[in-house]
Design a protein around this nucleic acid. Structure first.
Lengths: 168, 168
DNA sequence: ATAAACTTTCAATACATTTTGAAAGTTTAA
DNA sequence: TTAAACTTTCAAAATGTATTGAAAGTTTAT
């Protein structure tokens, strides 16, 4: 396989995976492109390479910056802004975990905490089942939360070393 | 909060979380409804409760069965089909992990394996960066894969016990 | 064989999200 | 200050996804 073809495949695969996990396809693709590009890129280059409009490129890049996955760079004597993606996979994984925890897991845990407190007749099967399910999901969510928190603090080698050691 | 209100909140929250993670909102809502309902439900009841059409209810229920989250039940002397959701949270988490692994992670790992093999000029920064990123992501994906595999085999208490023990 | 009870299908429609591109806004250099 | 270089905005258009509901299909009882 040619490098050019391989790049396209990678961008496509990353875009698809992203969209299956609730991340805008274009955003995942721009990120993929930046990941496999050694130097930082301009908006123009990204537009060109992925055949997307200026507006789309601009918004997507801002989103990626908001996710902490991409940073703006300035080159001396140049007006243009350059965009660069951190290529450390562990940093990327942590950053995504961090943002999704904040944006999605935290709010859900808050609601589950509230719903766990709802009182009712213990003899009522409807109440019993509701309460049991909510309580159980809440516990699971909190375990996931704790695991993520540890992951955020950890070094990659330590984290996977510990996790994989379990599996012996 | 009233039980009725709490139920609605739970269904809404579950639906939202689902859609943020690439799962059809209605599907998550139907699952939520079945989770907090002690007995199995008919298509009619689900349609009624969530104000959705017959076609939608039918397709959604079949999807949920495909995900292994819901099962059909038959009651003696009745023609109607009843639907029931397993309420064991750990089973649910495992089932979802299992399906997403099969549907999304496995295909991506296959592509990454291919892309890892692409040959090129080691002096070429474009190739070097491509290769490095693909290789690193492949390693991460395989670690996740192994972790999921262990999770699928494990008992809940053992799994979380082991994971959470790491964090001392 | 017929009809009632129930389930499934799918083309049409509604809804939601993404993308475009031109206009407005901003910054810089001279 | 002007104009060129560049970035941002956002209403409109395009695209993608979910939902409806009536018709077709299936099963069961008689």
């Amino acid at each position: 396989m040619e490098l050019a073809e391989a790049k396209l495949k990678f961008i496509e695969a990353w875009g698809k995976l992203g969209s299956e996990w609730g991340i805008n396809r274009t955003m995942a693709q721009v990120h993929a492109l930046l990941l496999i590009t050694p130097d930082s890129m301009t908006t123009e280059e990204i537009m060109e390479e992925l055949s997307i409009s200026r507006g789309n490129a601009n918004m997507t890049l801002r989103d990626l910056i908001g996710w902490g996955l991409v940073e703006k760079q300035h080159k001396a004597g140049e007006r243009k802004e350059y965009f660069y993606a951190d290529k450390d996979t562990w940093n990327i994984a942590r950053q995504v975990a961090k943002e999704r925890r904040k944006r999605e897991l935290d709010p859900v845990i808050k609601i589950l905490d509230e719903l766990s407190k709802v009182q009712g007749d213990v003899k009522d099967p409807a109440f019993k089942t509701f309460n049991q399910s909510v309580t159980d999901i809440n516990k699971l969510a909190k375990n996931v939360d704790k695991t993520l928190e540890t992951m955020l603090k950890a070094e990659e080698s330590w984290f996977w070393g510990s996790i994989l050691k379990i599996f012996k």
